[in-house]
C-alpha cells in the first residue's frame, strides 16, 4: 500500500511579494525563487528550503506546521490559506505568495495577526462574563451541560484566528475597523454559551452597527476561505436577525 501518491517532480517558480518596513531602502517588489519540488512538499518545507539555501532574510511565520495554530495564513495564488498544509503538488509550477491583507506588515510574508486578534478580543470582550469567576468553587461538581450544546460550542470554537476570513472579506478591505467573521463568530459562540450572562442588548452594544454585524455584505468569502470550514455565513445571518430584533 502506498501512503502518498507520487507525481513527477517539477521545478517550482515561487514568486514572493517582498518588503521590509524596518529597512528605509526597501520597496515592495516581487522576487522569484526556483526550487526542485520534493515528495509531499508543503509550502512550509518549500519556504524553509528557500530561506536555508537561497535567501536567509526571507521572513514568514510558522509555528505548529500542522494546520492548528493559525500562524501561516498567506495569499497563495490569489486565495488566502494556511501555507503549512498546502501541498505544492496541488498547485501549478508557478506559485505566487503574498502577505495577508488587512494586517500590519512585519516583513515579507509575516503579518501581525496577533495584535489585530488581541484588539478584537478586547473590543468584543470575547470571554465568559459571569459573576465570581475568580472565586469558582473548584471542589464542587461542575454545572452540567447538554452534550449536544458542548459540541455546538466546540464547533464555533474551532476558529484558529488565522485571519483568512479578514483577507477574504470585502468589507474588511474597505473598513479598517470591521470586526469580520472571526469577531462575529466569537459573539455567536459566547451568545450560545449559557455560562455567559450577557444578553442580546449587551451584544448589540458590541456589534450592532456597520463595523459589526451590519457591515457584512454577504459576499461569503469568509466561509469559502475558512481553513476550518466554520459555518461563518450562517452564524452571521443568524446574529443579524437577533440583533435586528433588539
Amino acid at each position: 500500500m502506498s501512503t502518498i501518491p507520487v507525481k513527477a517532480l517539477r521545478t517550482l517558480k515561487i514568486r514572493v511579494l517582498r518588503h521590509n518596513p524596518a529597512d528605509p531602502d526597501s520597496t515592495p517588489n516581487m522576487q522569484t525563487f526556483e526550487l526542485e519540488e520534493a515528495d509531499s512538499m508543503t509550502l512550509f518545507v518549500a519556504l524553509n528550503v528557500i530561506r536555508e539555501e537561497q535567501d536567509p532574510s526571507l521572513a514568514f511565520d510558522f509555528v505548529c506546521r500542522a494546520g492548528i495554530c493559525g500562524s501561516c495564513g498567506m495569499i497563495i495564488n490569489g486565495r488566502p490559506g494556511l501555507a503549512c498544509r498546502t501541498l505544492t503538488r496541488d498547485l501549478p509550477e508557478d506559485i505566487t505568495l503574498a502577505p495577508l491583507p488587512g494586517f500590519e506588515l512585519i516583513a515579507d510574508l509575516s503579518v501581525n495577526t496577533g495584535k489585530w486578534m488581541r484588539g478584537i478580543s478586547e473590543r468584543l470582550e470575547t470571554w465568559v462574563h459571569a459573576q465570581g469567576l475568580d472565586t469558582v468553587d473548584v471542589d464542587a461538581l461542575e454545572t452540567p451541560m447538554e452534550p449536544e450544546l458542548a459540541q455546538q460550542l466546540y464547533e464555533l470554537e474551532r476558529c484558529i484566528e488565522c485571519g483568512c476570513c479578514i483577507a477574504a472579506c470585502g468589507t474588511a478591505q474597505m473598513r479598517e475597523d470591521f470586526v469580520g467573521a472571526v469577531g462575529l463568530n466569537q459573539i455567536t459562540r459566547f451568545r450560545l454559551d449559557p455560562r455567559d450572562e450577557r444578553d442580546d442588548a449587551d451584544f448589540y452594544e458590541l456589534v450592532g452597527d456597520d463595523v459589526g454585524v451590519f457591515g457584512c455584505m454577504t459576499l461569503l468569502g469568509c466561509e469559502d476561505m475558512c481553513p476550518k470550514d466554520l459555518p461563518l455565513a450562517t452564524q452571521i445571518a443568524f446574529l443579524r436577525r437577533r440583533m435586528v430584533a433588539v
Binding site: 469567576l133 461542575e142 451541560m145 454559551d193 455560562r195 455567559d196
Partner: peptide
Amino acid sequence: RELAAWGVPWSR
C-alpha cells in the same frame, strides 16, 4: 472545574 467555569466546552 475552573476551566469549565471559564468557558471550555468539555465533552459531556
